[in-house]
């Protein structure tokens, strides 16, 4: 008996697998992280672009002042992880939608995964190994609280 395939599907639909449903958790992640990111990003934009002198106020001393405060360390860590994984998962969706061959899909997915892993490690290391008063730095470039050290 010849089986009748569903029209226009290149591969037969994947049968339900056991274990963790990654796509479901990805879907949930986008919504859960999105909700938190609305608060984190608008807060970040307000402090860095709107309040005071806006973008003109940002320099090493400004960032060092923020990262000397545990509140902003937690804020920026959450921002880094939630935003980058949210973005990468979104790009994964676009790659799945728009690539025409399995090879290009594979190459692009590996590129996104690599960039994500590298930037998560880099960003986390920067936040947690950061010294607001680096040795030998000019006094006018570092936060004022470095003077007493």
């Amino acid at each position: 008996m010849t089986t009748i395939e569903a029209p226009r599907s290149p591969k037969p639909a994947r049968t339900r697998r056991r274990g963790i449903n990654g796509e479901k958790w990805g879907w949930i992640y986008m919504r859960a992280s999105g909700l938190v990111l609305v608060i984190l990003i608008f807060g970040h934009l307000f402090v860095n672009l709107v309040s005071g002198k806006g973008v003109n106020a940002i320099d090493f001393a400004f960032v060092a002042g923020k990262l000397a405060d545990p509140f902003w360390v937690v804020w920026d860590t959450l921002l880094l992880w939630l935003a980058l994984i949210h973005g990468s998962n979104g790009i994964r969706t676009l790659i799945n939608d728009y690539t025409r061959t399995p090879l290009t899909r594979r190459i692009l997915l590996i590129a996104v995964a690599t960039a994500t892993a590298v930037l998560l490690i880099l960003g986390t290391l920067v936040i947690y190994t950061f010294d607001p008063c680096p040795a030998g730095a000019a006094a006018n470039l570092v936060p004022s609280f470095c003077q007493g050290r």
Binding site: D59, F60, A64, G123, P134
Partner: peptide
């Protein structure tokens, strides 16, 4: 943005 902010770890001059 992650790359440019990472310059704070390099030197105040590089970030500025």
């Amino acid at each position: 943005h992650i790359l440019d902010t990472s310059l704070v770890r390099l030197s105040p001059e590089a970030y500025n």
